[in-house]
């Protein structure tokens, strides 16, 4: 009975959704036209998605970073404090050696993607996830005790708070320069030359802060979730 009722609800909703999709109209996308035609000129960031995320709609991104922060701090208190052993799969020496070999390269890719977020595909979120993969790999291959010894949880939560605060404080630069909060392209900052590494004002710095935050946040989440009582 329950299944039948659910089925009816689901079919009705999906049908409504499909009908809506098929009768969707288009509008003048002036906003995206503006971003495409003038975005790179205004913000000096070649990656338009980054330009939107970290300049035009940077306030959204601040909220996004806040979500990661909130989840990481929640999971940190929800899971058991006692560090018990995780379900241990003993890996062979091949696995362990390969992991240690991979780590520097992973670090480089992560750092590259964060640093070049405004001129090539990537950015703080993507790069941060790759950095978090490093600690996740260490945890999986060498166990949680080793991982927590190598990168202590306190350091991770410090990094996370630091990244989040850094984002907000970078936003205040706009106010200090006499503009509004998170002002970048419209402030008196020197944006540099389009396409160079040091350009587009505070965008690379916000990228860096977000990267730090996401990397720390995700590794806190993973290490907390994998602990067993």
């Amino acid at each position: 009975m329950r299944k039948f009722a659910s089925l009816i609800i689901v079919v009705l909703l999906s049908g409504l959704l499909l009908m809506t999709f098929l009768s969707l109209s288009t509008a003048d996308y002036d906003l995206s036209e503006h971003y495409i035609n003038h975005g790179a000129e205004e913000t000096k960031a070649l990656n338009l998605v980054t330009a939107i995320l970290f300049d035009y709609r940077a306030f959204d991104t601040l909220g996004e970073a806040t979500v990661v922060f909130a989840v990481a701090s929640t999971i940190a208190f929800l899971v058991p404090k006692r560090t018990a052993s995780m379900i241990s799969a003993r890996f062979s020496i091949i696995m362990q050696q390969t992991t240690s070999l991979l780590i520097p390269f992973l670090f480089m890719i992560g750092a590259y993607i964060i640093a070049y977020g405004h001129i090539s595909p990537g950015g703080g979120f993507a790069g941060g996830v790759i950095l978090a993969v490093i600690t996740i790999l260490i945890t999986v291959t060498f166990g949680i005790r080793y991982s927590d010894r190598q990168v202590r949880p306190e350091i991770k939560s410090f990094m996370e708070s630091f990244g989040a605060m850094g984002f907000v404080l970078l936003g205040f630069i706009g106010i200090v320069l006499g503009g509004n909060f998170l002002a970048n392209a419209n402030s008196t900052l020197d944006l540099g030359v389009k396409g160079e590494l040091i350009s587009s004002g505070i965008i690379p710095h916000i990228n860096l802060m977000t990267g730090l935050k996401v990397a720390a946040g995700l590794s806190i989440m993973f290490n907390s979730l994998i602990k067993e009582e």
């Binding site: 409504l16 959704l17 009908m19 809506t20 009768s23 969707l24 109209s25 288009t26 509008a27 003048d28 996308y29 002036d30 906003l31 995206s32």
Partner: peptide, 29 residues
């Protein structure tokens, strides 16, 4: 996201101004 598709904007002012042009069914959904 449906609202963005039919209005091409995200701030309340332009959304409200363009929303009337959308088809009836979309608005109801």
């Amino acid at each position: 996201i449906l609202t963005y598709q039919v209005t091409g904007a995200l701030n309340f002012a332009q959304v409200a101004a363009n929303f009337g042009d959308a088809p009836m069914l979309v608005r109801q959904t």
